[in-house]
Simulated scan of single mutants.
Amino acid sequence: MKFLETPVLEVLNSALNFETPECKVLGRIEPYSCKAAGADKKLYKQLESKYDPSSQNLSPPDDDGANIMNIISPFGPMNQPASRKTLFYLIGTLNASFPDYDFSDTKPEQFRKEPSVSIVVNSINATLLNHGNERAVKELGIWDAIDQLIDLEDSDVYSYNPESDSDPNDEEGGGTLWSFNYFFYNRKLKRIIFFTMRGVSHGVPTSEDGDEDDGNFSNTDDDNDGVGHRRKGRDMDEDDYDDMITEDMDLQ
């Protein structure tokens, strides 16, 4: 996934980080183009080998005789290329947004397709207003900016719902009071807006405070049932990754 540099969002993201008497609120809006870099290619092949009916590595039927291909995901039947492509895009976005985590084993059922864009917009607005941030909603035109980037009317919205003990928004091991992770996905534009926000108890150190990692992570188990977990190491040096040429993939 290719992160899109968008100056207008810098002001909005600054406004989404504020403090209330109850908690610190940390939020960000990130736009991504559905283009795949080298690291994404590996993810795509992994998902295809797991869910593509033509693959030679399909999971065997379970005890009830049901095959993984019979799963109806939030994206549709997983034996359909369009469904697998949507899952790939959402997982790729999570990997890009939380680079210290690996979400490659995240399961389709950990996502939810929201009933409508308007319901999600109203929910986010209510969260901001309830925490005293009228500026982001009423003055800065947060949704006008997002609409210009992705055309909300022509987008679907998905949410990511990890287990509480493996939520990347709670990486410090406690203190997160609430959080949400929404993906606004426009298939025609091949673009995703990732909107994530969390409320953290006062006194709990966060990465935004500039604290250094102490190396003690609660999510380092490779067998953590398909949820995001800390990467034990990178596949390449950071400079090599940043210099990698981004290119389109034929996912049709």
Rank of each mutant, 00 (worst) to 15 (best):
1 M>F: 07
2 K>G: 07
5 E>Q: 12
8 V>M: 00
11 V>Q: 04
15 A>T: 04
18 F>W: 11
26 L>E: 09
30 E>H: 13
32 Y>G: 00
33 S>Q: 14
35 K>L: 06
35 K>T: 09
38 G>Q: 11
38 G>S: 13
50 K>P: 11
52 D>I: 08
53 P>S: 07
57 N>R: 08
60 P>M: 07
61 P>N: 10
62 D>G: 00
66 A>M: 10
67 N>P: 00
67 N>M: 08
71 I>M: 08
74 P>H: 02
79 N>H: 14
80 Q>M: 14
82 A>V: 15
84 R>L: 13
87 L>N: 02
88 F>A: 07
88 F>R: 01
90 L>E: 05
92 G>L: 07
92 G>D: 03
93 T>I: 08
94 L>W: 05
99 P>Y: 08
99 P>G: 01
102 D>S: 12
103 F>Y: 14
110 Q>L: 08
110 Q>D: 03
113 K>S: 08
114 E>K: 03
114 E>T: 02
115 P>K: 13
116 S>N: 01
119 I>T: 13
124 I>S: 00
125 N>L: 10
126 A>H: 15
126 A>V: 02
126 A>C: 11
128 L>T: 03
131 H>I: 02
133 N>H: 12
138 K>N: 15
138 K>V: 14
140 L>C: 06
141 G>H: 09
144 D>R: 11
145 A>K: 07
148 Q>V: 15
149 L>A: 10
154 D>E: 15
156 D>F: 08
157 V>P: 06
167 D>I: 00
168 P>K: 13
172 E>S: 07
181 N>C: 15
182 Y>V: 04
182 Y>M: 04
186 N>W: 06
188 K>T: 15
195 F>V: 12
198 R>H: 12
198 R>C: 12
199 G>T: 05
199 G>W: 05
200 V>L: 00
203 G>Y: 08
205 P>G: 12
207 S>V: 02
208 E>V: 11
210 G>C: 05
212 E>A: 05
217 F>W: 13
217 F>D: 08
219 N>E: 03
221 D>I: 04
227 V>N: 14
230 R>H: 10
241 Y>S: 13
242 D>H: 13
242 D>Y: 13
245 I>R: 08
246 T>W: 13
248 D>L: 06
250 D>E: 12
252 Q>D: 15
